[in-house]
Protein backbone atom coordinates (compact mmCIF):
# COMPACT_ATOMS: atom_id res chain seq x y z
CA UNK A 1 0.00 0.00 0.00
CA UNK A 2 1.37 3.29 -1.01
CA UNK A 3 0.96 6.81 0.22
CA UNK A 4 0.74 9.68 -2.22
CA UNK A 5 1.11 13.10 -0.69
CA UNK A 6 1.48 16.64 -1.92
CA UNK A 7 2.59 19.61 0.10
CA UNK A 8 2.08 23.29 -0.73
CA UNK A 9 1.62 22.75 -4.47
CA UNK A 10 1.56 25.76 -6.75
CA UNK A 11 1.13 25.61 -10.50
CA UNK A 12 0.47 28.20 -13.14
CA UNK A 13 0.10 28.00 -16.91
CA UNK A 14 0.31 30.89 -19.35
CA UNK A 15 0.63 33.38 -16.51
CA UNK A 16 -2.60 32.22 -14.86
CA UNK A 17 -2.37 30.75 -11.37
CA UNK A 18 -4.22 27.44 -11.38
CA UNK A 19 -3.21 25.93 -8.05
CA UNK A 20 -1.84 27.75 -5.02
CA UNK A 21 -0.82 26.17 -1.74
CA UNK A 22 -2.59 22.83 -2.15
CA UNK A 23 -1.99 20.06 0.37
CA UNK A 24 -3.35 16.60 -0.43
CA UNK A 25 -2.70 13.22 1.14
CA UNK A 26 -4.02 9.92 -0.13
CA UNK A 27 -3.46 7.41 2.64
CA UNK A 28 -2.44 3.86 1.76
CA UNK A 29 -5.38 1.91 0.38
CA UNK A 30 -7.90 4.68 0.62
CA UNK A 31 -10.07 6.18 -2.09
CA UNK A 32 -9.73 9.94 -2.17
CA UNK A 33 -12.25 11.97 -4.18
CA UNK A 34 -11.26 15.32 -5.71
CA UNK A 35 -14.28 17.57 -6.16
CA UNK A 36 -14.72 21.10 -7.37
CA UNK A 37 -16.46 23.17 -10.00
CA UNK A 38 -15.21 23.43 -13.60
CA UNK A 39 -11.89 25.26 -13.68
CA UNK A 40 -11.15 24.65 -10.01
CA UNK A 41 -7.85 22.97 -10.92
CA UNK A 42 -8.78 19.30 -10.54
CA UNK A 43 -7.10 18.09 -13.75
CA UNK A 44 -3.97 20.16 -13.03
CA UNK A 45 -3.77 18.73 -9.52
CA UNK A 46 -4.06 15.17 -10.85
CA UNK A 47 -1.30 15.83 -13.40
CA UNK A 48 1.00 17.12 -10.69
CA UNK A 49 0.13 14.16 -8.44
CA UNK A 50 0.96 11.77 -11.29
CA UNK A 51 4.28 13.52 -11.92
CA UNK A 52 3.31 14.58 -15.43
CA UNK A 53 4.13 18.23 -14.61
CA UNK A 54 6.68 19.69 -12.22
CA UNK A 55 4.94 22.00 -9.72
CA UNK A 56 6.17 25.61 -9.60
CA UNK A 57 6.38 25.20 -5.84
CA UNK A 58 5.93 22.32 -3.42
CA UNK A 59 6.53 18.59 -3.84
CA UNK A 60 4.66 15.39 -4.49
CA UNK A 61 5.93 12.35 -2.63
CA UNK A 62 5.33 8.66 -3.22
CA UNK A 63 5.87 6.79 0.06
CA UNK A 64 7.98 9.71 1.21
CA UNK A 65 10.21 9.95 -1.88
CA UNK A 66 9.84 13.11 -4.01
CA UNK A 67 8.34 12.03 -7.32
CA UNK A 68 10.71 14.10 -9.46
CA UNK A 69 13.76 12.29 -8.03
CA UNK A 70 12.49 8.92 -9.27
CA UNK A 71 13.09 7.70 -12.86
CA UNK A 72 9.90 7.87 -14.98
CA UNK A 73 9.91 4.14 -15.54
CA UNK A 74 10.05 3.37 -11.82
CA UNK A 75 7.19 5.80 -11.17
CA UNK A 76 5.20 4.15 -13.99
CA UNK A 77 5.44 0.76 -12.29
CA UNK A 78 3.87 2.18 -9.14
CA UNK A 79 1.53 4.91 -10.33
CA UNK A 80 -0.90 4.92 -13.25
CA UNK A 81 -3.15 7.70 -14.52
CA UNK A 82 -6.38 7.55 -16.49
CA UNK A 83 -6.83 10.81 -18.36
CA UNK A 84 -10.08 12.26 -19.58
CA UNK A 85 -10.93 11.08 -23.13
CA UNK A 86 -7.49 10.62 -24.72
CA UNK A 87 -7.53 10.24 -28.51
CA UNK A 88 -5.61 7.64 -30.49
CA UNK A 89 -3.87 8.71 -33.72
CA UNK A 90 -3.84 5.20 -35.17
CA UNK A 91 -6.36 2.45 -34.88
CA UNK A 92 -5.68 -0.39 -32.47
CA UNK A 93 -7.59 -3.16 -30.77
CA UNK A 94 -8.78 -3.07 -27.18
CA UNK A 95 -6.16 -5.62 -26.17
CA UNK A 96 -3.42 -3.64 -27.99
CA UNK A 97 -4.43 -0.62 -25.94
CA UNK A 98 -4.52 -2.56 -22.68
CA UNK A 99 -1.12 -4.11 -23.50
CA UNK A 100 0.36 -0.58 -23.52
CA UNK A 101 -0.01 -0.76 -19.74
CA UNK A 102 2.84 -3.26 -19.74
CA UNK A 103 5.27 -0.72 -21.24
CA UNK A 104 7.11 0.06 -17.98
CA UNK A 105 7.50 -3.66 -17.25
CA UNK A 106 8.84 -4.76 -20.66
CA UNK A 107 12.34 -4.84 -22.08
CA UNK A 108 13.08 -3.07 -25.36
CA UNK A 109 12.60 -6.12 -27.54
CA UNK A 110 10.88 -8.45 -25.12
CA UNK A 111 7.63 -9.90 -26.41
CA UNK A 112 4.76 -10.06 -23.91
CA UNK A 113 5.70 -12.73 -21.37
CA UNK A 114 3.40 -14.86 -19.20
CA UNK A 115 3.21 -12.21 -16.46
CA UNK A 116 2.34 -9.53 -19.04
CA UNK A 117 -0.41 -11.67 -20.56
CA UNK A 118 -1.83 -12.54 -17.15
CA UNK A 119 -1.97 -8.86 -16.18
CA UNK A 120 -3.70 -7.98 -19.47
CA UNK A 121 -6.25 -10.80 -19.07
CA UNK A 122 -6.96 -9.75 -15.50
CA UNK A 123 -7.43 -6.10 -16.48
CA UNK A 124 -9.77 -7.05 -19.33
CA UNK A 125 -11.73 -9.28 -17.00
CA UNK A 126 -12.04 -6.72 -14.19
CA UNK A 127 -13.35 -4.06 -16.60
CA UNK A 128 -15.71 -6.44 -18.41
CA UNK A 129 -13.88 -6.03 -21.72
CA UNK A 130 -12.87 -9.62 -22.41
CA UNK A 131 -15.53 -10.01 -25.10
CA UNK A 132 -14.46 -6.74 -26.76
CA UNK A 133 -10.74 -7.51 -26.87
CA UNK A 134 -10.44 -7.67 -30.66
CA UNK A 135 -12.67 -4.66 -31.26
CA UNK A 136 -11.00 -1.68 -32.87
CA UNK A 137 -10.64 1.55 -30.86
CA UNK A 138 -12.40 3.55 -33.56
CA UNK A 139 -15.59 1.49 -33.16
CA UNK A 140 -15.80 1.85 -29.37
CA UNK A 141 -18.36 4.01 -27.59
CA UNK A 142 -17.23 6.69 -25.16
CA UNK A 143 -17.90 4.41 -22.22
CA UNK A 144 -16.02 1.49 -23.77
CA UNK A 145 -13.05 3.78 -24.41
CA UNK A 146 -13.15 4.94 -20.81
CA UNK A 147 -13.13 1.34 -19.58
CA UNK A 148 -10.31 0.48 -22.00
CA UNK A 149 -8.18 3.26 -20.51
CA UNK A 150 -8.97 1.99 -17.01
CA UNK A 151 -8.00 -1.54 -18.09
CA UNK A 152 -4.76 -0.16 -19.56
CA UNK A 153 -3.96 1.50 -16.23
CA UNK A 154 -4.81 -1.67 -14.28
CA UNK A 155 -2.56 -3.73 -16.58
CA UNK A 156 0.22 -1.45 -15.38
CA UNK A 157 -0.28 -3.11 -11.95
CA UNK A 158 0.24 0.12 -10.04
CA UNK A 159 -0.01 0.67 -6.29
CA UNK A 160 -1.57 4.09 -6.84
CA UNK A 161 -4.06 5.00 -9.54
CA UNK A 162 -5.03 8.58 -10.39
CA UNK A 163 -8.22 9.07 -12.41
CA UNK A 164 -9.74 12.14 -14.04
CA UNK A 165 -13.51 11.70 -14.09
CA UNK A 166 -13.44 7.94 -14.71
CA UNK A 167 -17.23 7.75 -14.75
CA UNK A 168 -17.60 10.27 -17.59
CA UNK A 169 -19.37 8.73 -20.58
CA UNK A 170 -20.49 5.74 -18.51
CA UNK A 171 -24.10 4.75 -17.99
CA UNK A 172 -25.18 4.41 -14.36
CA UNK A 173 -24.55 0.67 -14.30
CA UNK A 174 -20.91 1.04 -15.35
CA UNK A 175 -20.42 4.06 -13.07
CA UNK A 176 -21.32 1.84 -10.13
CA UNK A 177 -19.26 -1.04 -11.52
CA UNK A 178 -16.15 1.10 -11.97
CA UNK A 179 -16.36 2.75 -8.56
CA UNK A 180 -17.07 -0.58 -6.85
CA UNK A 181 -14.09 -2.07 -8.68
CA UNK A 182 -11.79 0.79 -7.60
CA UNK A 183 -12.87 0.29 -3.99
CA UNK A 184 -12.43 -3.46 -4.15
CA UNK A 185 -8.90 -3.41 -5.59
CA UNK A 186 -5.95 -3.19 -3.24
CA UNK A 187 -5.02 0.25 -4.49
CA UNK A 188 -4.58 3.79 -3.32
CA UNK A 189 -7.03 5.72 -5.50
CA UNK A 190 -7.20 9.45 -6.20
CA UNK A 191 -10.10 10.32 -8.47
CA UNK A 192 -11.77 13.47 -9.69
CA UNK A 193 -15.53 13.11 -9.71
CA UNK A 194 -18.41 15.38 -10.65
CA UNK A 195 -21.25 13.41 -9.08
CA UNK A 196 -21.43 14.44 -5.41
CA UNK A 197 -23.68 11.52 -4.41
CA UNK A 198 -21.34 8.93 -5.90
CA UNK A 199 -18.31 10.68 -4.42
CA UNK A 200 -19.93 10.70 -0.98
CA UNK A 201 -20.86 7.07 -1.23
CA UNK A 202 -17.66 5.55 -2.63
CA UNK A 203 -14.81 7.74 -1.37
CA UNK A 204 -13.21 7.41 2.04
CA UNK A 205 -12.35 11.08 2.05
CA UNK A 206 -12.97 14.09 -0.17
CA UNK A 207 -10.88 17.11 -1.12
CA UNK A 208 -12.85 20.05 -2.50
CA UNK A 209 -10.95 22.49 -4.72
CA UNK A 210 -12.14 26.01 -5.33
CA UNK A 211 -10.17 28.61 -7.31
CA UNK A 212 -6.99 26.57 -7.01
CA UNK A 213 -7.12 26.15 -3.24
CA UNK A 214 -8.45 23.46 -0.92
CA UNK A 215 -11.87 24.66 0.26
CA UNK A 216 -12.54 21.62 2.42
CA UNK A 217 -11.10 18.16 3.10
CA UNK A 218 -12.20 15.23 5.19
CA UNK A 219 -14.82 12.52 5.47
CA UNK A 220 -17.77 12.94 3.05
CA UNK A 221 -20.24 13.55 5.86
CA UNK A 222 -18.13 16.39 7.22
CA UNK A 223 -17.25 17.97 3.87
CA UNK A 224 -20.53 17.92 1.97
CA UNK A 225 -22.68 20.56 3.63
CA UNK A 226 -25.36 22.88 2.27
CA UNK A 227 -23.12 25.84 3.07
CA UNK A 228 -20.07 24.50 1.26
CA UNK A 229 -22.00 23.51 -1.85
CA UNK A 230 -23.67 26.92 -1.98
CA UNK A 231 -20.32 28.64 -1.53
CA UNK A 232 -18.37 26.84 -4.25
CA UNK A 233 -21.02 25.71 -6.75
CA UNK A 234 -23.61 28.46 -6.20
CA UNK A 235 -26.41 25.91 -5.77
CA UNK A 236 -28.93 25.63 -2.95
CA UNK A 237 -29.18 22.04 -1.75
CA UNK A 238 -30.43 19.80 0.97
CA UNK A 239 -27.85 17.26 2.14
CA UNK A 240 -29.31 14.31 4.00
CA UNK A 241 -28.15 10.91 5.07
CA UNK A 242 -29.61 8.32 2.74
CA UNK A 243 -31.62 5.75 4.69
CA UNK A 244 -30.64 3.18 2.04
CA UNK A 245 -26.87 3.63 1.83
CA UNK A 246 -26.07 5.54 4.99
CA UNK A 247 -24.03 7.97 2.89
CA UNK A 248 -24.77 11.67 2.41
CA UNK A 249 -27.08 12.37 -0.51
CA UNK A 250 -27.62 15.73 -2.16
CA UNK A 251 -30.89 17.17 -3.46
CA UNK A 252 -30.34 20.15 -5.74
CA UNK A 253 -32.95 22.92 -5.28
CA UNK A 254 -31.92 25.93 -7.41
CA UNK A 255 -28.91 27.95 -8.49
CA UNK A 256 -28.13 31.03 -6.44
CA UNK A 257 -27.12 34.40 -7.86
CA UNK A 258 -23.82 34.58 -6.05
CA UNK A 259 -21.08 32.11 -6.72
Amino acid sequence: MTLLAAHDLAWSAGGVTILDGVDVTARPGEMLGVLGPNGAGKTSLLRLLAGLRRPDRGTVTLDGTPLHTLPRRIVARRLAIVEQSPEAHTDLTVSDAVALGRTPHRGRFAPLDAADRAAIERALDLTGLTALRTRSWRTLSGGERQRTQLARALAQEPAVIVLDEPTNHLDIRYQLDVLTLLRRLDLTVVTALHDLDLAARYCDRLVVLHDGRVAAAGAPGAVLTDALIRQIYGVDTVVETSPHTGAPTVTYLRTTDAR
Binding site: R47, A50, G51, L52, R72, A76, L79, A80, I81, E83, P86, E87, A88, H89, T90, L92, A97, L100, Q149
Partner: peptide
Protein backbone atom coordinates in the same frame (compact mmCIF):
# COMPACT_ATOMS: atom_id res chain seq x y z
CA UNK B 1 -0.68 6.33 -29.29
CA UNK B 2 -2.75 8.06 -26.62
CA UNK B 3 -0.72 11.23 -26.44
CA UNK B 4 2.22 12.61 -24.52
CA UNK B 5 0.76 12.48 -21.01
CA UNK B 6 -0.28 8.85 -21.24
CA UNK B 7 3.15 8.03 -22.74
CA UNK B 8 4.89 9.82 -19.86
CA UNK B 9 2.70 7.97 -17.35
Amino acid sequence: TFGWDTAAS
